[in-house]
Design a binder for these strands. Structure first.
Lengths: 101, 101
DNA sequence: TGACAATATCGAAATACTGCGATAAGTAGA
DNA sequence: TCTACTTATCGCAGTATTTCGATATTGTCA
């Protein structure tokens, strides 16, 4: 839970997390994503980087932190890595605050 | 909200927050607290410091951060400063995660 | 295989946080 | 007023985080 709060203690990462709630309106379509993976909320690193306005290495680092904290999961397809939200962790975090904090 | 997550990104502060959920079982009685303020969850700095196992200056700093983030409120009575949880902020934080994140 | 594109990792400098000891400020009582 | 007690603030050293540029890795395609 400590790693989760550390992730959330950064406004850029918070924004990424909220953007990924609605990829269709926040990112261009993932044209290389195979049909069977579409509609699952996957977004590739490049477009997240562009929107976040940080360097590629920074966004890659951030996404990795978020993955370690299980706030995101990822899938590599071809030369792209697609990240999406892990709703279960988000929900558990909310519940943790509501019932344990 | 950023300040809140920064506060939560520290295990000692998390512990303090949870201890303050139930002062009666986690802290000795506040014998100097006037009758009309009892039962409101107030705990003085000294006993929090002792239980947290950090120095007085550190706990004072932490409590101040938590107050800035509105996770705690405080009242000075005599030579003691009493802190208690601000349940409203906790609840709003949980709701923020559940509905905006 | 070679060139290119996307992402990950490395190394480093700037900044922020942690947590301490020392000291200051406020309060109460003799 | 002097002293003791409680808490706040200051200054600092150690550590962690932020964020970058450079480089490595991985995958694609000609």
């Amino acid at each position: 839970m400590d790693a989760i709060f550390k992730v959330l203690a950064n406004p850029v990462r918070i924004r990424i997390l909220t953007w990924l709630k609605d990829p269709d309106t926040n990112f261009p379509p993932m044209i290389h994503l195979p049909e069977e993976e579409k509609g699952k909320g996957y977004v590739c690193v490049g477009v997240i980087q562009e929107k976040a306005g940080v360097t590629q290495s920074t966004v890659s680092h951030y996404l990795n932190l978020m993955k370690q904290a299980e706030l995101l999961s990822c899938k590599r397809i071809g030369q792209w890595t697609y990240y999406r939200r892990n709703e279960e962790t988000l929900q558990k975090t909310s519940e943790y605050i509501a019932s344990y904090l």
